[in-house]
Protein backbone atom coordinates (compact mmCIF):
# COMPACT_ATOMS: atom_id res chain seq x y z
CA UNK A 1 0.00 0.00 0.00
CA UNK A 2 1.41 3.36 -0.98
CA UNK A 3 1.06 6.12 1.57
CA UNK A 4 2.81 9.45 1.22
CA UNK A 5 6.30 10.16 -0.02
CA UNK A 6 7.85 13.55 -0.48
CA UNK A 7 11.21 14.29 -2.12
CA UNK A 8 12.99 17.64 -1.92
CA UNK A 9 9.84 19.68 -1.45
CA UNK A 10 10.34 23.43 -1.82
CA UNK A 11 7.97 26.35 -1.53
CA UNK A 12 8.61 30.06 -1.16
CA UNK A 13 6.25 32.98 -0.67
CA UNK A 14 8.09 36.01 -1.97
CA UNK A 15 11.58 35.87 -0.48
CA UNK A 16 10.57 33.62 2.40
CA UNK A 17 11.38 29.94 1.92
CA UNK A 18 8.56 28.21 3.81
CA UNK A 19 9.73 24.75 2.74
CA UNK A 20 13.43 24.44 2.01
CA UNK A 21 13.85 20.90 0.70
CA UNK A 22 11.86 18.32 2.69
CA UNK A 23 12.23 14.60 2.07
CA UNK A 24 10.28 12.00 4.00
CA UNK A 25 8.04 8.98 3.52
CA UNK A 26 5.39 7.36 5.66
CA UNK A 27 5.60 3.62 6.29
CA UNK A 28 2.26 1.82 6.08
CA UNK A 29 0.62 1.54 9.48
CA UNK A 30 2.81 4.02 11.28
CA UNK A 31 2.04 7.30 12.97
CA UNK A 32 4.44 9.94 11.69
CA UNK A 33 4.67 13.27 13.47
CA UNK A 34 5.61 16.67 12.11
CA UNK A 35 6.71 18.86 15.00
CA UNK A 36 7.72 22.45 14.85
CA UNK A 37 7.06 25.90 16.25
CA UNK A 38 4.43 28.14 14.66
CA UNK A 39 5.49 29.05 11.16
CA UNK A 40 7.84 26.08 10.77
CA UNK A 41 5.99 24.93 7.64
CA UNK A 42 3.89 22.06 9.03
CA UNK A 43 0.59 23.17 7.57
CA UNK A 44 2.18 24.11 4.23
CA UNK A 45 3.65 20.59 4.08
CA UNK A 46 0.19 19.11 4.60
CA UNK A 47 -1.36 21.42 2.01
CA UNK A 48 1.28 20.46 -0.55
CA UNK A 49 0.81 16.78 0.21
CA UNK A 50 -2.94 17.13 -0.42
CA UNK A 51 -2.47 19.07 -3.64
CA UNK A 52 -4.01 22.28 -2.25
CA UNK A 53 -0.77 24.22 -2.63
CA UNK A 54 1.47 23.74 -5.64
CA UNK A 55 5.11 23.40 -4.56
CA UNK A 56 7.87 25.28 -6.38
CA UNK A 57 9.90 22.08 -6.70
CA UNK A 58 9.90 18.51 -5.48
CA UNK A 59 8.03 15.27 -6.03
CA UNK A 60 5.00 14.14 -4.04
CA UNK A 61 3.15 10.86 -4.27
CA UNK A 62 -0.02 10.33 -2.25
CA UNK A 63 -1.89 7.01 -2.19
CA UNK A 64 -0.07 5.91 -5.34
CA UNK A 65 -0.73 9.04 -7.37
CA UNK A 66 1.39 12.01 -8.34
CA UNK A 67 0.45 15.24 -6.57
CA UNK A 68 -0.67 17.88 -7.42
CA UNK A 69 -1.52 16.42 -10.87
CA UNK A 70 -3.87 13.73 -9.57
CA UNK A 71 -4.38 15.02 -6.04
CA UNK A 72 -8.15 15.04 -6.29
CA UNK A 73 -8.28 11.29 -6.91
CA UNK A 74 -5.61 10.62 -4.29
CA UNK A 75 -7.76 12.36 -1.66
CA UNK A 76 -10.36 9.59 -2.05
CA UNK A 77 -8.13 7.40 0.12
CA UNK A 78 -7.32 10.09 2.70
CA UNK A 79 -9.20 11.43 5.73
CA UNK A 80 -8.39 14.90 7.01
CA UNK A 81 -8.85 16.53 10.40
CA UNK A 82 -8.07 20.22 9.85
CA UNK A 83 -6.61 22.57 12.40
CA UNK A 84 -9.73 24.71 12.57
CA UNK A 85 -13.16 23.10 12.93
CA UNK A 86 -15.19 23.51 9.78
CA UNK A 87 -18.25 21.42 10.52
CA UNK A 88 -21.45 22.65 8.91
CA UNK A 89 -23.17 24.69 11.65
CA UNK A 90 -26.57 24.47 9.94
CA UNK A 91 -26.62 20.68 10.03
CA UNK A 92 -27.10 18.07 12.69
CA UNK A 93 -24.33 15.64 13.62
CA UNK A 94 -25.67 12.94 11.28
CA UNK A 95 -26.27 15.37 8.41
CA UNK A 96 -22.67 16.52 8.63
CA UNK A 97 -21.53 12.94 8.01
CA UNK A 98 -24.10 12.25 5.30
CA UNK A 99 -23.33 15.39 3.32
CA UNK A 100 -19.58 14.87 3.63
CA UNK A 101 -19.94 11.31 2.36
CA UNK A 102 -21.63 12.65 -0.78
CA UNK A 103 -18.48 14.62 -1.61
CA UNK A 104 -16.75 11.25 -1.95
CA UNK A 105 -19.46 10.01 -4.28
CA UNK A 106 -20.84 7.69 -1.60
CA UNK A 107 -24.50 6.72 -1.75
CA UNK A 108 -26.69 8.04 1.06
CA UNK A 109 -27.66 4.50 2.04
CA UNK A 110 -24.01 3.46 2.36
CA UNK A 111 -23.15 6.44 4.55
CA UNK A 112 -26.32 6.16 6.64
CA UNK A 113 -25.45 2.55 7.36
CA UNK A 114 -22.04 3.62 8.67
CA UNK A 115 -23.24 6.58 10.75
CA UNK A 116 -24.13 4.67 13.97
CA UNK A 117 -20.73 3.00 13.97
CA UNK A 118 -18.92 6.29 13.28
CA UNK A 119 -20.81 8.04 16.07
CA UNK A 120 -20.12 5.17 18.43
CA UNK A 121 -16.41 5.47 17.64
CA UNK A 122 -16.52 9.22 18.22
CA UNK A 123 -18.31 8.84 21.56
CA UNK A 124 -21.33 10.61 20.09
CA UNK A 125 -23.80 7.74 20.09
CA UNK A 126 -27.32 9.09 20.65
CA UNK A 127 -26.30 12.54 19.40
CA UNK A 128 -27.13 11.95 15.74
CA UNK A 129 -29.76 14.67 15.73
CA UNK A 130 -27.91 17.19 17.89
CA UNK A 131 -27.14 20.62 16.46
CA UNK A 132 -23.47 21.45 16.03
CA UNK A 133 -23.64 24.52 18.27
CA UNK A 134 -24.78 22.36 21.19
CA UNK A 135 -21.56 20.29 21.09
CA UNK A 136 -18.53 20.97 23.25
CA UNK A 137 -15.12 21.62 21.71
CA UNK A 138 -14.06 18.03 22.34
CA UNK A 139 -17.24 16.65 20.76
CA UNK A 140 -16.72 18.79 17.68
CA UNK A 141 -13.17 17.50 17.31
CA UNK A 142 -14.40 13.92 17.63
CA UNK A 143 -17.12 14.55 15.07
CA UNK A 144 -14.48 16.02 12.75
CA UNK A 145 -12.49 12.81 13.26
CA UNK A 146 -15.59 10.74 12.48
CA UNK A 147 -16.17 12.85 9.36
CA UNK A 148 -12.60 12.14 8.25
CA UNK A 149 -13.39 8.41 8.49
CA UNK A 150 -16.57 8.56 6.43
CA UNK A 151 -14.74 7.25 3.33
CA UNK A 152 -12.90 4.57 5.35
CA UNK A 153 -9.50 6.04 4.39
CA UNK A 154 -6.16 4.22 4.46
CA UNK A 155 -4.36 7.39 5.43
CA UNK A 156 -5.29 10.06 7.97
CA UNK A 157 -3.91 13.59 8.14
CA UNK A 158 -4.42 15.35 11.46
CA UNK A 159 -3.38 18.98 11.79
CA UNK A 160 -3.01 19.80 15.50
CA UNK A 161 -5.96 17.61 16.45
CA UNK A 162 -5.96 18.33 20.18
CA UNK A 163 -5.17 22.05 20.29
CA UNK A 164 -7.57 23.76 22.69
CA UNK A 165 -8.95 20.57 24.26
CA UNK A 166 -9.05 19.73 27.95
CA UNK A 167 -7.04 16.70 29.20
CA UNK A 168 -10.04 14.36 29.17
CA UNK A 169 -10.87 15.25 25.59
CA UNK A 170 -7.22 14.94 24.52
CA UNK A 171 -6.87 11.49 26.06
CA UNK A 172 -10.02 10.32 24.31
CA UNK A 173 -8.67 11.52 20.93
CA UNK A 174 -5.38 9.73 21.61
CA UNK A 175 -7.20 6.50 22.43
CA UNK A 176 -9.15 6.71 19.20
CA UNK A 177 -6.03 7.38 17.17
CA UNK A 178 -4.37 4.33 18.72
CA UNK A 179 -7.40 2.24 17.75
CA UNK A 180 -7.15 3.51 14.19
CA UNK A 181 -3.47 2.61 14.09
CA UNK A 182 -4.37 -0.87 15.34
CA UNK A 183 -6.80 -1.19 12.45
CA UNK A 184 -3.84 -0.61 10.15
CA UNK A 185 -4.38 3.00 9.18
CA UNK A 186 -1.41 5.24 8.52
CA UNK A 187 -1.41 8.57 10.32
CA UNK A 188 0.37 11.84 9.63
CA UNK A 189 0.09 14.12 12.64
CA UNK A 190 1.23 17.68 13.17
CA UNK A 191 1.40 18.93 16.71
CA UNK A 192 3.32 21.16 19.00
CA UNK A 193 2.49 19.07 22.04
CA UNK A 194 5.59 16.99 22.63
CA UNK A 195 3.87 14.60 25.00
CA UNK A 196 1.32 13.89 22.29
CA UNK A 197 4.04 13.13 19.76
CA UNK A 198 5.96 10.98 22.24
CA UNK A 199 2.85 8.96 23.03
CA UNK A 200 1.53 8.46 19.52
CA UNK A 201 4.30 8.69 16.95
CA UNK A 202 6.39 5.76 15.79
CA UNK A 203 8.60 8.27 14.02
CA UNK A 204 8.69 12.00 13.90
CA UNK A 205 10.51 14.91 12.40
CA UNK A 206 11.25 18.19 14.12
CA UNK A 207 11.11 21.00 11.61
CA UNK A 208 12.00 24.65 11.74
CA UNK A 209 12.16 27.27 9.01
CA UNK A 210 11.07 24.75 6.40
CA UNK A 211 13.77 22.17 7.15
CA UNK A 212 13.95 18.94 9.11
CA UNK A 213 16.42 19.33 11.94
CA UNK A 214 15.88 15.88 13.49
CA UNK A 215 14.09 12.71 12.41
CA UNK A 216 13.60 9.28 13.95
CA UNK A 217 11.65 7.49 16.66
CA UNK A 218 11.03 9.62 19.77
CA UNK A 219 13.67 7.60 21.69
CA UNK A 220 16.20 7.89 18.88
CA UNK A 221 15.69 11.63 18.60
CA UNK A 222 16.07 12.08 22.34
CA UNK A 223 19.16 9.86 22.48
CA UNK A 224 20.78 11.57 19.53
CA UNK A 225 20.23 15.15 20.56
CA UNK A 226 20.23 15.47 24.29
CA UNK A 227 21.68 14.25 27.58
CA UNK A 228 19.49 11.57 29.20
CA UNK A 229 18.62 13.38 32.43
CA UNK A 230 17.42 16.80 33.40
CA UNK A 231 17.36 18.60 36.74
CA UNK A 232 15.29 21.77 36.77
CA UNK A 233 16.33 24.10 39.59
CA UNK A 234 14.11 26.92 40.91
CA UNK A 235 14.91 29.56 43.51
CA UNK A 236 12.57 30.18 46.43
CA UNK A 237 11.17 33.69 46.32
CA UNK A 238 13.17 36.09 48.50
CA UNK A 239 15.74 33.48 49.47
CA UNK A 240 18.08 32.58 46.66
CA UNK A 241 18.27 32.93 42.92
CA UNK A 242 18.51 29.84 40.75
CA UNK A 243 20.00 31.91 37.97
CA UNK A 244 22.86 33.15 40.16
CA UNK A 245 23.46 29.67 41.53
CA UNK A 246 23.51 28.23 38.04
CA UNK A 247 26.00 30.80 36.75
CA UNK A 248 28.35 30.20 39.66
CA UNK A 249 28.09 26.48 40.34
CA UNK A 250 26.00 24.41 37.91
CA UNK A 251 28.75 24.08 35.31
CA UNK A 252 30.78 21.67 37.43
CA UNK A 253 27.90 19.16 37.60
CA UNK A 254 25.99 19.42 34.32
CA UNK A 255 27.07 18.91 30.72
CA UNK A 256 24.91 21.82 29.68
CA UNK A 257 22.96 24.46 31.58
CA UNK A 258 20.19 26.66 30.22
CA UNK A 259 18.89 29.54 32.27
CA UNK A 260 15.52 31.07 31.47
CA UNK A 261 14.30 33.66 33.93
CA UNK A 262 14.43 32.09 37.38
CA UNK A 263 14.76 28.48 36.24
CA UNK A 264 18.00 26.64 35.50
CA UNK A 265 17.77 23.54 33.30
CA UNK A 266 20.74 21.26 33.96
CA UNK A 267 21.26 18.53 31.33
CA UNK A 268 23.46 15.69 32.49
CA UNK A 269 24.42 12.05 32.05
CA UNK A 270 25.22 11.45 35.70
CA UNK A 271 22.80 13.08 38.09
CA UNK A 272 23.95 11.94 41.54
CA UNK A 273 26.64 14.56 42.24
CA UNK A 274 24.24 17.42 41.49
CA UNK A 275 21.43 15.81 43.50
CA UNK A 276 23.81 15.50 46.51
CA UNK A 277 24.85 19.13 46.05
CA UNK A 278 21.24 20.32 45.86
CA UNK A 279 20.23 18.32 48.93
CA UNK A 280 22.45 20.60 51.03
CA UNK A 281 21.33 23.83 49.42
CA UNK A 282 18.48 25.51 51.19
CA UNK A 283 16.38 27.91 49.21
CA UNK A 284 16.58 25.95 45.97
CA UNK A 285 13.86 23.56 44.82
CA UNK A 286 14.44 21.09 42.03
CA UNK A 287 12.77 18.55 39.77
CA UNK A 288 14.69 15.54 38.53
CA UNK A 289 13.33 13.80 35.43
CA UNK A 290 14.42 11.94 32.29
CA UNK A 291 15.00 14.12 29.24
CA UNK A 292 12.03 14.25 26.90
CA UNK A 293 11.11 15.41 23.45
CA UNK A 294 10.28 18.89 24.66
CA UNK A 295 13.89 19.32 25.81
CA UNK A 296 15.11 18.30 22.37
CA UNK A 297 12.60 20.58 20.72
CA UNK A 298 13.63 23.58 22.78
CA UNK A 299 17.30 22.83 22.29
CA UNK A 300 16.94 22.59 18.52
CA UNK A 301 14.45 25.38 17.91
CA UNK A 302 15.43 27.72 20.74
CA UNK A 303 13.39 29.20 23.53
CA UNK A 304 12.46 32.42 21.77
CA UNK A 305 8.77 33.06 21.22
CA UNK A 306 7.41 32.37 17.72
CA UNK A 307 4.33 34.39 16.96
Amino acid sequence: METLSVVDLRKSYGDVAVLAGLTFALRPGECYGLLGPNGAGKTTTLRCALGLTAPDAGTIRLAGRPVPERAREARRRVGIVPQMDNLDPDFTVAENLLVYGRYFGLADAAVSARIPQLLEFAGLAGRANAKINTLSGGMKRRLTLARALVNDPDLLFLDEPTTGLDPQARHLIWERLKQLLQQGKTVLLTTHFMDEAERLCHRLAIMDKGRFIAEGSPREVIAAHIEPEVIEVYGEPGESSAAEWAKAEAGQFATRVEITGETAFCYLTESRPLLRHLADRHGLRYLHRPANLEDVFLKLTGRDLRD
Binding site: D88, F104, G105, R147
Partner: peptide
Amino acid sequence: QRTWDAILNAP
Protein backbone atom coordinates in the same frame (compact mmCIF):
# COMPACT_ATOMS: atom_id res chain seq x y z
CA GLN B 1 -17.52 28.99 8.15
CA ARG B 2 -14.63 27.48 6.16
CA THR B 3 -17.09 25.16 4.44
CA TRP B 4 -15.02 25.41 1.26
CA ASP B 5 -11.91 24.21 3.10
CA ALA B 6 -13.79 21.13 4.30
CA ILE B 7 -15.06 20.39 0.80
CA LEU B 8 -11.61 20.85 -0.76
CA ASN B 9 -10.26 18.21 1.62
CA ALA B 10 -12.61 15.73 -0.05
CA PRO B 11 -12.01 14.57 -3.64
